[in-house]
């Protein structure tokens, strides 16, 4: 337990270790700690920014979705309208066509009837003449009686 030179030796060693620690240990470790702190702060910052961005993007997405839904509904409605319109048009056209065809058919029928009538008339007149010839069993002047027969035929 004697006090001796060890005291000074210890003080010198102490001074050296403190100097070494101050010079070579403390600054790099503190620097690393500060850098990491900054890095973490930056990271947290970026994370909060990213979450804000995400929120914004989600908002935008829902907005777009809503818009497109509206648009789709509009288009659908238009299509419905258009289709019903087209159906109406087609119906109208068909009706007109039908009418037209009916009229045409009617007129054709009429024509046909007239022609048939004409033919019938001519044949009847000839038949009448033949019949008359047969009946009279004499030759009658065809020309002279043709007028008579035609008149007769017209009265039919």
């Amino acid at each position: 337990m004697n006090l001796n030179l060890t005291l000074i030796g210890q003080a010198i060693a102490f001074a050296f270790f403190v100097w070494f620690c101050m010079r070579f240990v403390w600054p790099p470790v503190m620097q690393a700690l500060r850098d990491r702190q900054k890095k973490i702060a930056d990271g947290l910052d970026a994370a909060s920014r990213a979450s804000r961005d995400l929120e914004l993007a989600e908002q935008q997405a829902s907005e777009t979705l809503r818009e497109s839904k509206e648009q789709a509904a509009e288009i659908l409605e238009q299509a419905h309208k258009r289709s019903s319109q087209m159906i109406d048009e087609a119906r109208e056209q068909a009706r007109q066509e039908g009418e037209r065809m009916i009229t045409q058919a009617k007129s054709e029928i009429e024509q046909e009837v007239n022609r048939a009538k004409d033919e019938l008339r001519s044949q009847v007149s000839r038949l009448a003449v033949v019949a008359a010839e047969r009946i009279l069993e004499s030759s009658i002047d065809e020309k002279r009686h043709a007028e008579l027969v035609d008149k007769l035929a017209e009265e039919l």
Binding site: L5, T6, F24, V25
Partner: peptide, 24 residues
């Protein structure tokens, strides 16, 4: 007074070196 405790100095310096070198 003019004497050194070799064990004290030896161990303290060795342990001090352990500390500074490990941390370094």
């Amino acid at each position: 007074f003019w004497a050194l405790h070799l064990d004290t100095l030896g161990w303290s310096i060795a342990l001090g070196l352990v500390f500074v070198l490990l941390f370094r």
